[in-house]
Design a protein around this nucleic acid. Structure first.
Length: 297
DNA sequence: ACGCGCTCCTGGGAGC
DNA sequence: TGCTCCCAGGAGCGCG
């Protein structure tokens, strides 16, 4: 489940291994991951052939590779997507969806021959790739995505104001990529646990100091994950070189149902929220009274 | 306009 | 042993 730190690790890997290479051929093995491209598989492939990759950029969980003609190859990993740099001779992965044959990889590619593949591998296909016309600087398809909390231009005061303006549950706001990008279910739960705030508290009921604390903890947990190369749970996430992350040992809330809270020893609880799971410590992160009453009947 | 909830998709694992 | 069902969740989309 790639969130900002994982996507950033992929971006950095792409920057090192494919920037400067030329896309010699594109093979779409499954149409779904190209569904966002108006040209379909054929148009997608045609638009990329002979284009040179000139950069590797990221906005929240979106990636894009600016091309030499001002367009961009965009990618979103969804839940299970991977970007792998492989020798062209390597056997196909089970869930290989799109293969980009590259010439002139900057370091000669993984086997030094220069015959390199960039491969989009995605089991569940929530993710996808597309060509963004004129999107080299910032693809218009990503213009609605907010800056991420590690971006030097992120506006802390505006974020605090935006959270306190909304009646929505604060976790929902954290997951809203138009307010703050890069936060997914895992880091949302971790940051809420660290700042001792229940995710179902309405944004407008939080004090400014609490929202600032939440932002601080989002940054902290992301920075720690980034330093360790990203979180991985089940090998669905693999970075550009195929190395799994190992941050999962550091989780305090996510996936910890029934385990004692590291702070107070109370058993961590799991509840359904927004068609997914939320994990929290019922003592450190008291359930809002309104929610409590409803749950009691 | 904005908030909210449904839906897409696959495979591992639990349960019968 | 083999079937069915549930679960994981990012984000686009449509409804109220």
């Amino acid at each position: 489940m790639p969130e900002l730190p994982e996507v950033e690790v992929v971006r950095a890997g792409l920057e090192r291994h494919v920037v400067g290479a030329t896309i010699a051929a594109v093979e779409v093995l499954h149409p779904r991951p190209v569904r966002r491209d108006p040209g379909g598989p054929a148009g997608f492939s045609d638009a990329l052939r002979d284009r040179r990759i000139v950069g590797a950029r990221r906005r929240g969980k979106y990636l894009w590779l600016p091309l030499d003609n001002g367009d961009a190859l965009t990618a979103h990993l969804g839940m299970s997507g991977q970007m792998l740099v492989q020798p062209a001779a390597a056997p196909d992965e089970r869930h290989l969806r799109v293969r980009f044959r590259l010439d002139g990889a900057p370091d000669g590619g993984p086997d030094g021959t220069g015959a390199t593949d960039l491969r989009f591998v995605d089991q569940r296909m929530f993710g996808g790739v597309a060509v963004s016309v004129g999107g080299a600087d910032l693809p218009p398809e990503m213009a609605h995505v907010a800056r991420d909390p590690l971006d030097p231009d992120f506006d802390d005061a505006a974020f605090v104001a935006a959270v306190r303006r909304r009646a929505s549950a604060v976790k929902r706001i954290l997951l809203d990529q138009t307010v703050v990008s890069g936060v997914g279910n895992i880091y949302a739960d971790e940051a809420l646990w660290r700042s001792q705030i229940h995710g179902e508290r309405p944004g407008q009921r939080l004090r400014p100091v609490q929202v600032r604390s939440l932002l601080t903890e989002v940054r902290a947990v992301m920075a720690e994950a980034l330093a360790q190369g990203g979180t991985s749970f089940d090998a669905l996430y693999v970075n550009v070189n195929g190395e799994s992350g190992y941050f999962d040992r550091s989780l305090d809330a996510y996936g910890q149902e029934g385990r004692p809270c590291r702070r107070c020893g109370t058993a961590v609880r799991r509840v359904a929220f927004m068609n997914r799971s939320s994990y929290f410590c019922p003592r450190c992160q008291p359930v809002p009274r309104r929610i409590d009453r409803r749950a009691a009947g």
